[in-house]
């Protein structure tokens, strides 16, 4: 009886892990497969599909997504630090209510936020900002609650005695913020900023309403293309974009060392 159960247990884990890795393996295989129908032949592979990525068709959307994600990460990083500073460090009156307000966008599905923004801009006659400006604003709305929450968690967890010690030794507020508070919350903020970059770079449900012809982000360009064709160039685009995201995470990890933060259990 026990043997049967543990066999089933291991079988279940194996099946689930296979289920999780299967589509990823298929896409990687497709991106290396030489024929235009997707095949799995490990001895026969090519990198020619990746060459197609250097055309304007894919480079333009990639650069747009990259620019938008960078600006979104920077803006939501700064705004998130400021908001967390006011709420946690200055403890302004009504901070619990303000925090709830700042986190409220989290309870609204992205597709609803997206349609609300496009309806609002159309009603007030600002369709002109559709494209890059609207994409940046919408992605900031999406990312800001996450960044604020991560910055607030770091500020809450940070040892206030360090700050008090510096104060009693005569450090000015500016010196304390610059030399104690900011370095202490840096890992939390950097993981928030990395997260903001990734959710902006990968976003579909908001972007789908806000892109303009000629101003299309990479994921939207990919899903538009997928409606017509499943050719291996798509696989190459997807693999390249995954490698790009992993590189971004690796670089931020090098700068900020936030994996210690993640293992520390703060969310």
């Amino acid at each position: 009886m026990n043997g049967v159960l543990s066999c089933l247990f291991w079988l279940a884990i194996g099946v689930v892990l296979a289920f999780i890795t299967l589509p990823l393996a298929v896409v990687v295989a497709a991106s290396l497969s030489p024929s235009s129908t997707v095949t799995f032949l490990p001895w026969d592979w090519t990198l020619e599909w990746f060459g197609a990525l250097l055309s304007d068709r894919w480079l333009q959307p990639f650069l747009l997504s990259f620019r938008i994600a960078t600006v979104v990460a920077a803006i939501s990083g700064v705004l998130g630090i400021l908001a967390a500073y006011a709420i946690v460090y200055e403890k302004i009156p009504g901070s619990a209510l303000i925090m709830a307000g700042l986190l409220s966008p989290l309870s609204v599905p992205q597709i609803v936020k997206g349609v609300a923004i496009v309806l609002f801009l159309s009603i007030i006659g600002l369709q002109g900002i559709l494209g890059t400006p609207a994409l940046i604003a919408a992605h900031v709305v999406l990312a800001l609650p996450f960044v604020t929450r991560m910055a607030a968690t770091s500020l809450t967890n940070f040892d206030g005695n360090l700050d008090r010690a510096a104060q009693s030794l005569g450090a000015t507020k500016r010196q304390r913020l610059q030399h104690i508070v900011l370095p202490m919350i840096k890992p939390g903020v950097l993981s928030g900023v990395t997260f903001a970059f990734i959710i902006s770079f990968n976003n579909i449900p908001l972007s789908v309403f806000l892109v303009r012809p000629g101003d299309t982000t990479l994921p939207i360009a990919v899903i538009n293309y997928l409606e017509y064709s499943l050719d291996p160039v798509m696989a190459a685009v997807n693999v390249a974009s995954m490698i790009f995201i992993l590189t971004v995470i690796f670089l931020f990890e090098k700068i900020g060392g936030f994996s210690t933060q993640l293992h520390g259990g703060s969310k």
């Binding site: 589509p23 997707v38 994921p219 997928l226 798509m234 997807n238 693999v239 995954m242 995470i249």
Partner: peptide, 17 residues
């Protein structure tokens, strides 16, 4: 780890399958 790959890549994988 698949969480890092993005929704499009994974959905594309299922489309091929």
């Amino acid at each position: 780890a698949p969480e890092l790959a993005g929704v499009v890549l994974r959905t594309y994988g299922w489309l091929i399958i």
